[in-house]
């Protein structure tokens, strides 16, 4: 197992190199002169030249790349063009906001998705199954910024409900913006988690149905095991094996989805930072955020692979 983990970590090295090359070349793939773009259309030539010199853009590409990588390894992501502050500092606290948002959303998605999937599979073709699958389809097809806006409308601004409905005259339970307190967290997490919950529910259902048809489930029943235990002890663990992979991929997707959600809920996270930096052509910040996100993604997938291996003892350890 240890050997596997070590090997798996070593295997991420080429991925990281690939990511760094990609992020590095971003600046050079944009049409036009990066220095000119960063300095702004109307900047005087002298300023552009200065900037080019400062960024080392006159060096040959490989040299630039190695300078970039060695800076990154030392924790130096460069300085923001907009604010002049260190990119690491810019990302700093925002990074944890986004991670929290994605993490809570994943927890929510996993929790709801698995429960719904299991119910759906065990009560196949029932009313509950059909209901869950229809809701899941909605969850999948709803753009999350729209869901966010609706949630704000209903539960933060509040609906005008007839006054004879008890307790519900005012539904403005949550805050429409910001991050930190419970009432601020709920709506964005639901917004971001719904799509993944739907995907996980569908995945769990099909995986569960597959497992329930396996021979060893029949063996368990023939042993006299109670149906509930057949499902949770014998079927679920096996059914979760493919779901784990999906959860890992979903987490990556959530990091992307966070951009929209943060914008809708005015949360000061990395997503907002990227959007603002892109519109301001603040390349070092864009590069830094993408790099950090990619690293996070690689790290999460590493965890997922290890969890997968742990669940699935059948895979040879090497």
């Amino acid at each position: 197992m240890i050997q596997y983990i070590v090997r798996r970590i070593l295997q991420t090295i080429p991925v990281l190199i690939g990511v760094s090359i990609l992020v590095f070349s971003m600046m050079h793939l944009v049409p036009g002169d990066p220095a000119q773009i960063m300095a702004g259309e109307s900047a005087p030539q002298e300023q552009v030249d200065n900037l080019r010199e400062r960024l080392g853009l006159n060096d040959p590409l490989p040299v630039q790349y190695f300078t970039y990588v060695s800076n990154v390894v030392q924790g130096d992501l460069g300085n923001s063009i907009r604010s002049g502050r260190d990119v690491g500092d810019e990302i700093g606290s925002r990074f944890w906001v986004t991670v929290e948002l994605a993490f809570y959303s994943t927890i929510l998605a996993v929790f709801i998705g698995i429960i719904a999937g299991v119910i759906s599979a065990t009560k196949r073709n029932s009313f509950a199954d059909t209901g869950i699958m229809i809701v899941a389809l909605f969850g999948l097809s709803m753009p999350n910024f729209w869901l966010g806006l609706m949630l704000i409308q209903w539960f933060a601004i509040g609906m005008d409900l007839p006054s004879w409905i008890p307790f519900l005259e005012n539904t403005s339970w949550f805050k429409p913006s910001g991050w930190g307190s419970f009432s601020q967290i709920v709506l964005p997490v639901i917004t971001l988690g719904t799509g993944s919950a739907a995907i996980i529910a569908r995945m769990t259902r099909s995986s569960m149905l597959d497992v329930i048809g396996q021979d060893y489930i029949r063996t368990a029943r023939a042993k006299g095991v109670k149906e509930r235990i057949v499902i949770y002890r014998h079927a679920l663990k096996n059914a979760l094996i493919p779901v784990v992979t999906v959860v890992g991929l979903q987490f990556g997707g959530l990091l992307g989805g966070a951009v929209l959600t943060e914008t809708v809920f005015a949360i000061n996270g990395m997503g907002r930072l990227v959007i603002d930096s892109i519109s301001a052509r603040d390349f070092p910040v864009v590069q830094g955020t993408i790099l950090v996100t990619a690293l996070l993604f690689v790290f999460v997938n590493l965890l997922v692979d290890i969890a997968y291996k742990f669940l699935n003892k059948r895979i040879d350890l090497d």
Binding site: Q214, Y216, T219, N238
Partner: peptide, 11 residues
């Protein structure tokens, strides 16, 4: 059952 390879729970 017939299939010893699949009749036991792998986990």
């Amino acid at each position: 059952f017939q299939e010893p390879m699949t009749s036991l729970n792998p986990t």
